[in-house]
Design a protein around this nucleic acid. Structure first.
Length: 595
RNA sequence: GGUCCCGUAGCUCAACGGAUAGAGCAUCAGAUUUCUAAUCUGAGGGCUGCAGGUUCGAUUCCUGCCGGGAUCACCA
């Protein structure tokens, strides 16, 4: 519709004012609710071409369109706004065409679709996941689903940080003071058990250097010189040398972490196509360093360290390799980026879902590959999201203010349970069905709460608000879906016995509003894909649910004045439920048929 | 200090450079003999941090300031 209208407006401008206008200079937007009309042309920008006042320009174009366009039935000019009303027949046709479509608005990927990789989650194996990881996981999963739905071949990858000094800390603490404790013997979830020893290490370290020096600098120095730190560093060297005992311990403890992560991932409903492990990639990147050196893009300092100078693009000089020749974080990232484009030859984009504290790092990474003339450097994209704050302030692991992911999920489930029971909605459900429902609602609340916020913005996580089930929340939208299913159930006879086919009546304002919102679904999805923004979908589906509830209250659906009207409204309700389901699906949220 | 991000109703968030800046929560007032009230309707609540600039038009773009955050490691 939009395309056709744009063309017609272009013709109108040409005929009326003998002027050329490109389609991107034509501003069309949905008409504000307080005015009559469906779509609005902003005529201010056309006055230069028309050489007339905005009102006059609007009137002329309006008259032209009313006469020549099959889409426009009437118009109204308010200042520089030409409000166009689209013919009912357009909306009716739209519904007739859309009803049979299984996944309206989705573009299924084909073999020729662009290939895109989304890296997200990226946990450390020394502690369990927390609230910050949850935002990351939900964003990554949703963005991947949105990209799939907009015609991309998506590869979801997880980059597990499974090695390094921090991993050795929990290993050493366990070896020294663990007495052979395992997840089985203790009943503690694997990742939490490891976290326990990571914390214990820190505690023992503090004890050793007691009294703790007053300044941060001195503390760091004291820790560095402690016997415990020396022991950990030795352990890391042993690990790098492939010492059998160390490797065995490492493997055992990492497997505990993975068992734990798997449970959390399953509860969150997220998954991956491929998992990369740092232990397998941390040595990569040295080849890239050599390449950069030979191309004179990098340079070596006297001590042997390798650097790149990025001051020409507004960044600093950056170390890429230590003076002892060992690699650092960015060395590895250089290597893995190359590895991925080697693994997936058709890869066009690599999206890193990583917090905004690493903005600088990813700028550097991209600039380096631009200098190395990798054509895919421009496809590197850092999906940078803001930190999650608590009402009490920042989350700090040292101060124990971190919200644990498993605890949070558990609490959400409990709240969903008590709320549902209080409302008496569990009648007739088996225990399993009820449990599943609680989880669906709990995750709906949590995921929607987090995803409705623009990713790049810092967000406040207030547990009390997040488990709210009223208003602009996941459960509100889930409820609308369930409510529609209840109506469909009531009208199933009409739906199955329909003989006359679909007759669309004169549309009332509420029906038309729903249809208009559904009409916007494909472009909203495209926008969400373009902007990597699940929030765009979240806000959209809320609007749709709200419009439906409004309609529901004013009009009878399954028992309307006549059967054809009921049939039409049932169909429209069913389509609404479908769009809600599709929207929620790309957010990673399930919708129940009753609640 | 340099660089980057963010400042919108009491609170949490919306608003491709467009109309009188919108929702939810909270507050107050209403709606259920009728398909799910986890719903719906209404009211109050704003110098969009401040000051300039560009524009027919700025919450949006530019400059400066104020406030919050991140980053500037041979850490990851």
């Amino acid at each position: 519709m939009k395309e056709q209208l744009l063309q017609e407006i272009r013709h109108a401008v040409q005929e009326l004012f003998s002027a050329q206008v490109t389609e991107k200079d034509i501003i069309l937007q949905p008409t504000n609710k307080e005015y009559t009309g469906d779509t609005t042309l902003v005529t201010f920008s056309l006055t230069k071409l028309s050489k007339k006042k905005p009102e006059e320009t609007g009137t002329l174009i309006g008259e032209y369109l009313k006469k020549n366009s099959k889409l426009v039935s009437s118009f109204e000019v308010v200042k520089g706004f030409l409000n166009l009303t689209i013919t009912d027949s357009y909306w009716k046709n739209f519904i007739i065409e859309t009803l049979p479509k299984e996944n309206f608005g989705f573009t299924p990927p084909t073999e020729k679709s662009p290939q895109v990789m989304v890296e997200y989650s990226s946990p450390n194996t020394n502690k369990p996941l927390h609230l910050g990881h949850i935002r990351n996981n939900l964003l990554g999963y949703s963005v991947a689903e949105i990209l799939k739905a907009t015609g991309n071949r998506v590869v979801k990858v997880n980059m597990v940080n499974d090695r390094g000094i921090h991993i050795c800390k929990s290993m050493l603490a366990w070896a020294k003071w663990g007495n052979g404790e395992t997840p089985q013997s203790s009943g503690i979830k694997g990742d939490h058990l490891i976290g326990k020893y990571y914390v214990l290490f820190d505690k023992k370290l503090k004890e050793e250097i007691n009294p703790v020096p007053s300044t941060e600098e001195n503390t760091e120095e004291a820790e560095k010189n402690s016997a415990l730190m020396k022991e950990v560093q030795q352990m890391l060297r042993n690990w790098e040398a492939g010492d059998k005992e160390t490797i065995a311990l490492w493997k055992m403890m990492n497997s505990w972490a993975y068992e734990g992560f798997d449970v959390t991932y399953k509860n969150l409903g997220i998954d991956f196509d491929k998992i990369y492990y740092e232990s397998e990639t941390y040595l990569l990147g040295k080849k890239i360093v050599e390449e950069g050196l030979s191309k004179k893009i990098f340079y070596k300092k006297e001590d042997g360290s390798v650097w790149v100078n990025l001051t020409d693009v507004g960044l600093d000089e950056k170390v890429l390799l230590r003076s002892d020749g060992t690699s650092i974080y960015i060395t590895q990232d250089l290597g893995t980026a190359q590895l991925r484009f080697d693994d997936y030859r058709e890869l066009e984009q690599l999206i890193y879902v990583v917090g905004n504290e690493q903005d600088y790092h990813f700028k550097v990474l991209k600039e380096i590959f631009k200098k190395l003339e990798r054509p895919w450097a421009y496809g590197l994209f850092h999906l940078s999201y803001g930190m999650v704050d608590l009402p009490s302030g920042k989350m700090k692991s040292r101060e124990g203010t971190v919200v644990d992911a498993d605890d949070l999920i558990h609490e959400m489930n409990e709240t969903a349970k008590t709320t549902t029971e209080q409302l008496g909605k569990v009648e007739g459900l088996s225990k399993e069905e009820a449990e599943k429902l609680y989880h669906t609602l709990a995750m709906g609340a949590l995921k929607y709460f987090i995803l409705k916020v623009d990713p790049k913005k810092r967000m406040l996580f207030n547990p009390a608000d997040s488990i709210d089930f009223n208003g602009n929340t996941g459960p509100f939208i889930q409820y609308t879906h369930a409510r529609i299913y209840s109506v469909l159930e009531k009208g199933k006879k009409i739906l199955s016995e329909n003989k006359t086919g679909l007759e669309i009546p004169e549309l009332n304002a509420e029906e038309k509003e729903i249809i208009k919102i559904i009409h916007r679904f494909p472009e909203t999805l495209q926008e969400a894909g373009r902007e990597f923004s699940p929030a765009a979908i979240a806000n959209y589906v809320y609007e749709l649910a709200k419009a439906f509830n409004h309609f529901y209250h004013l009009h009878t659906i399954a028992d309307a004045e006549n059967i054809p009207l009921s049939f039409f409204r049932l169909k429209l309700s069913g389509l609404t439920a479908q769009i809600i389901r599709q929207s929620m699906a790309v957010l990673g949220i399930e919708v129940p048929v009753r609640m």
